[in-house]
């Protein structure tokens, strides 16, 4: 069991990171830390994809020294997915940060519980 985990170290690390990010996003009260959690979670997935996409001994999929054999290169799709994923997570992070700024200006706090408490009070 442990040997398996050690052999797949990148994947193990990325799953642990995913867990950390997910819990932070779910449970932390501070909005900035929630956003950090979101980024850790997404980055963990990219690490996983990059680790899975790399085959030891093969090269980046850019034609090199005229070697035409496909077996000499890695598959470019996982890298493409990572790039697409980064674009998505950047836009989501920007949106979350802008929402956080608006909330901070209005309620003077980054604590989501505190904000929701004030918001409920206003509503009554």
């Amino acid at each position: 069991m442990l040997a398996h985990l050690a052999a797949n170290m990148e994947e193990t690390v990325s799953m642990i990171l995913f867990g950390i990010g997910f819990t932070t996003l779910l449970l932390h009260k501070n909005l900035i830390k929630k956003i950090i959690g979101l980024n850790i979670m997404d980055t963990a997935v990219y690490l996983f994809l990059a680790a899975k996409g790399y085959i030891f001994g093969r090269q980046v999929p850019i034609l090199n020294d005229g070697v035409m054999d496909a077996a000499a290169y890695t598959n470019p799709i996982p890298d493409g997915l990572v790039l697409t994923g980064i674009v998505v997570s950047v836009s989501v992070t920007a949106l979350m940060l802008s929402l956080t700024i608006r909330l901070y200006r209005r309620y003077g706090s980054l604590d989501l519980d505190e904000i929701v408490f004030q918001w409920r009070k206003e509503g009554q």
Partner: peptide, 27 residues
């Protein structure tokens, strides 16, 4: 108004948890 933004951030947090799980599962 304040309502909209608080509702939006709560929606986003839950929704992003869902997207994260969807992304890792499809990976």
């Amino acid at each position: 108004d304040g309502h909209g933004i608080v509702a939006a951030i709560r929606y986003m947090v839950m929704s992003l948890l869902g997207s994260g799980m969807f992304l890792i599962s499809l990976t």
